[in-house]
């Protein structure tokens, strides 16, 4: 074997990876070859130099950044799994219902469709009738005008149980975020006479919204009225899950993982219609009703 062959064994020799026989052969060669002896000495120095490099540590704030990032990831996954679970549960329930009571299901579906069509028709027709005739037909496609409470038709049975459950008149104090404070709550949310459920109590209930979503800066508003029908697709089930009293027993409590991004004060506004920011309104007496779920639109 020539020098280049022995050169290929040098690294293994330094790491003790050579067999006894090969090591002896290399040593014998090194004794008689000053060039290879110098080569292996240099290599040993280079390896020692690399190993002597000090261990570098990340900057002090890195640990916190990493923790925050992982918390966000954990929370995101929790929300996603919760949403998926709800959707799959809804589909399985629907499938079960279609097997057990197909006639009732067809009837309920057609009823909901009828209500939706009638509601949509009156919704489109409403602003056109009350608008100025000079505005032209394009007004039918403009944004809906808030309906006056006196003129508002009685709310049909909501197809969305959450909203029916909720429907109390609540005002939301503008969030502490100044950007949000300049964003007035929609008028319909505080001017509705329909109150099937109410949140009452000596103290105003505090709704704390926890989210890890970095793009959400605060609560824009809380929909509490039947006149202000929100698009169901806006409702993130994940927020509903977090606000359900007691939580999901199958899931670990996410409180420790989440960041509070804002709080909004929920008050009984039967006496404070149109004054969402007022704090001196006397609240109705009685024990605080348990808040089951709240739909929030961000």
């Amino acid at each position: 074997m020539d020098c280049s062959g022995y050169e290929r064994q040098m690294s293994d020799y330094l790491d003790g990876q050579l067999s006894k026989a090969t090591e002896d052969e290399l040593r014998f060669h090194l004794n008689g070859c000053p060039r290879c002896r110098l080569r292996i000495k240099d290599m040993e120095s280079a390896v020692r130099a690399v190993k002597s490099l000090p261990a570098v540590s990340p900057r002090p704030m890195f640990e916190q950044q990493l923790g925050n990032l992982l918390n966000r990831e954990v929370a995101r996954e929790l929300y996603a799994s919760s949403w998926l679970k709800r959707v799959s549960a809804a589909f399985s329930e629907l499938g079960e219902l279609s097997r057990q009571r197909p006639v009732q299901l067809v009837f309920a579906t057609s009823l909901i469709l009828t209500i939706t069509v009638i509601g949509g028709f009156s919704f489109v027709a409403g602003p056109t009738e009350s608008s100025d005739s000079s505005a032209g037909p394009s007004m039918a496609f403009s944004l809906p005008t808030p309906i006056e409470p006196e003129l508002a038709p009685p709310d049909p049975v909501s197809p969305f149980p959450l909203e029916r459950e909720l429907a109390p008149h609540m005002a939301v104090n503008p969030p502490m975020n100044t950007e949000q404070a300049t964003n007035p709550p929609p008028p319909a949310a505080t001017s509705l006479p329909y109150t099937p459920n109410r949140i009452t109590g000596d103290r105003p209930g505090i709704l704390t919204v926890r989210t890890m979503e970095p793009m959400i800066h605060g609560i824009r508003f809380v929909s509490a009225g039947t006149g202000m029908r929100l698009d169901p697709s806006l409702f993130d089930e994940a927020f509903g899950r977090d606000l359900v009293a007691g939580g999901d027993p199958d899931q670990p409590a996410p409180e420790d993982l989440l960041q509070t991004v804002g709080t909004a004060e929920l008050r009984d506004t039967r006496n404070a219609i149109g004054v969402p920011g007022a704090t001196d309104t006397p609240a109705a007496s009685g024990p605080t009703a348990p808040l089951k779920r709240v739909r929030i639109s961000f």
């Binding site: 050169e7 290929r8 064994q9 040098m10 293994d12 990876q17 080569r39 240099d42 280079a46 690399v50």
Partner: peptide, 17 residues
């Protein structure tokens, strides 16, 4: 891996020399 370690060390050694 062994071959690469050996070549890498030889190159390092040359650069450090």
């Amino acid at each position: 891996v062994k071959s690469r370690v050996n070549r890498g060390r030889l190159r390092l050694q040359e650069m450090l020399r």
